[in-house]
């Protein structure tokens, strides 16, 4: 196992004259499932295309399995890519779609047949050989695209928003499927998504990106519990983020006295980290909604709106009523500026 199976060193990616990704450094471990996460335009897809060889870096280098592939064309890199649209070949049936790459390698017919059948079996599409992509459901097309890449035994398998075109039920199914395939084949997988829940559920490690830079890199548990910046905190569901000044938190709206003196320039609380029903501060209910295990409130406070989850056992407060609340030290997440 190599700790830098895929190594991007000072990679700068440009579209025409505009820089999409400046001097990116990233190491991907062999056999891991890593996720590039971020809002649209953060450079995650651009980075993936650079690894695939579909976009040449303006500067910097890319190594895969110890070999410098910076100038190696995409068709010689041995990398698989499952496109968001699947990009299946509509004129070929399922078998020929999967066999496409193997045929290019001029392998013996018996080997092509064996590997194609094995690939279709891996994704549960045995029996669908003669179907055209148009005759298959979205989920089946996705599996077919996966099989087409997997039979090439790629060093790295890239997946662009692999679950975004599926409905909620299929999405869950495909999630488990991807994890199973990854475990079975041991292939290094890099997938791109804007959905943090998907990233948290699937990835071994998450690379959170913003404006072409890595904002934070860590395990899902790390990122979820310990975001380091306001951007990361916001992305991970810390909906209350405030600047600090001495023993106070401040916004453009106003300030609140805390019961402690923070050591960081910013503090963040998840809605479930805000105490409701007791505490030194008062907030007027702006909105309320029932969420099963808890009740969600938006409170109008001296800081402006604060989002807070209240225990379902507490009596419901109507819009316009006043609730007391607290921003406790225990649930506060310190953030860098």
């Amino acid at each position: 196992m190599s700790d830098s199976f895929v190594q991007l060193s000072d990679v700068t990616l440009m579209y025409g004259k505009s820089t999409a990704v400046p001097e990116l450094n990233l190491s991907i471990r062999e056999g891991e499932l890593i996720c590039l996460l971020g809002p649209s335009g953060c450079g995650k897809t651009t980075t993936m295309r650079a690894i695939a060889g579909l976009l040449n870096p303006a500067s910097g280098s890319i190594h895969i399995d110890g070999r410098d592939v910076t100038r190696v064309p995409a068709n010689k890199r041995g990398i698989g890519l499952v496109f968001q649209s699947y990009a299946l070949f509509p004129h070929l049936n399922a078998f020929e779609n999967v066999a496409f790459g193997l045929r290019l390698q001029k392998l013996p017919a018996s080997e092509i047949k064996a590997r194609t059948e094995e690939g279709l079996a891996t994704v549960g599409l045995t029996g669908f050989e003669t179907r055209k992509p148009a005759e298959m459901s979205g989920g089946q097309q996705q599996r077919l695209a996966l099989a087409r890449s997997l039979v090439m035994k790629p060093k790295v398998l890239l997946l662009d928003e692999p679950l975004s075109n599926l409905d909620a039920r299929l999405r869950l199914e495909m999630r488990t499927e991807l994890q199973r395939v990854q475990k079975e084949t041991g292939v290094t997988m890099v997938f791109v998504t804007h959905d943090q829940a998907e990233a948290l559920a699937l990835a071994d490690r998450i690379v959170l990106m913003q404006s072409g830079k890595i904002e934070q890199l860590g395990t899902p548990a790390d990122l979820y519990a310990r975001p380091e910046t306001a951007f990361a905190a916001d992305f991970m569901g810390f909906e209350n983020i405030f600047r600090t000044e001495g023993g106070k938190v401040v916004t453009d709206h106003g300030a609140l006295e805390l019961g402690f003196v923070p050591q960081s320039p910013m503090l963040a609380w998840r809605p479930d980290g805000v105490t409701v029903g007791s505490g030194p501060h008062q907030g007027r209910v702006l909105a309320t909604s029932f969420a099963g295990a808890h009740r969600e409130y938006v409170l109008e406070t001296a800081l402006g709106p604060v989002k807070a989850d209240a225990d379902i056992a507490l009596p419901e407060a109507a819009i316009g009523e006043t609730l007391s609340f607290d921003l406790p030290e225990a649930t506060a997440r310190p953030l860098a500026a």
Partner: peptide, 15 residues
Amino acid sequence: LRADMEEAAVLLGCS
């Protein structure tokens, strides 16, 4: 005809 179909072909080894 989507352009990514050609990119898919290239990644599978096509010029």
